[in-house]
Amino acid sequence: MLRYLTGRLLRAVLTIFLVITFAFFVLHLSGDPAMMILSADAPPESVKAFRAAWGLDRPLWIQYLAYVWNALHGDLGNSMRDGRPAVQLVLERVPATLAITVPAFLLKLVIGIPAGIYAALHRNSAADRLTMMVSVAGFTVPSFVLALVLVLVFSVQLGWLPSAGSDRPTSAILPIVTLGIAGAAILARFTRSAMLEVLGQPYIRAASAKGLQWRTVVVRHALPNAAIPTTTIVGFMVGTLIAGAVVVESVFAWPGIGRLLVSSVSNRDLAVVQVILLLVAATMVTANIVVDVVYGWLDPRLRRGGARGR
């Protein structure tokens, strides 16, 4: 297990390093930031001064080495727009994003998992069909459409909730519900098929045959086994807490990471985009490692062999 974890950590570091490299080269090869920040008709002297100030006049590989060196020292550069450290700019937005993604995540768990389990236990019932119909809709309706429909109903028609902004406590409700519904649909679908798979296994029949109550069979034998595949998708959802709300934040003018990303991308603010990419990668990688550890805890077979879960 320890050897396995060390390997995982090494791969995680490699992934993050790849992301830094990818971000650096994509962003630097794609255009001249000096031209994007200054206007196209800026005098040549100021373009030159800008390049010198940001180190853009040096060869690309030196810029890259300097970037990695500084990144290792916790310095990821300053925003080219307002000159403040990019890391600070991004971290300021994290609480706002978490304020909607964490409640939405809980909403997904609270609705999605019970709905999936219920549907699996009552296969082919009306409730099962209804759950599945709703969840099919949940992943074919894009989040921006869902968001706008909710705004249309609850803000425009009924006037109950604010349509955008973050100035009132009720402002967070629509973004949370939008994110939560879509995720709950996916989770319900996934939990249901994991449950059905487990319920079809011989050990479930054996447990019933030896006279256990159905309730005990479900709680003691089916649920723990179905939890294993469900952990994967839940772990992935944890990984998207930081950047899973790009579209929804934009619709509701919510001042989080997602909106910062969209505005930095249209302003071509290299440093800020790089920091966000890195933050997202780090979150995803961490979530994956946590999932692997949880796997080992849930599935004793993996503890000994040190083999991968999937």
Binding site: L27, S30, G31, V247, V265, L277, M284, N288
Partner: peptide, 18 residues
């Protein structure tokens, strides 16, 4: 690598900068 990053984020970065 691709499976571990949300593609929307990669796409946003690549698109706007190119």
């Amino acid at each position: 690598f691709q499976a571990s990053m949300p593609f929307l984020i990669i796409a946003l970065a690549v698109l706007a900068f190119f």
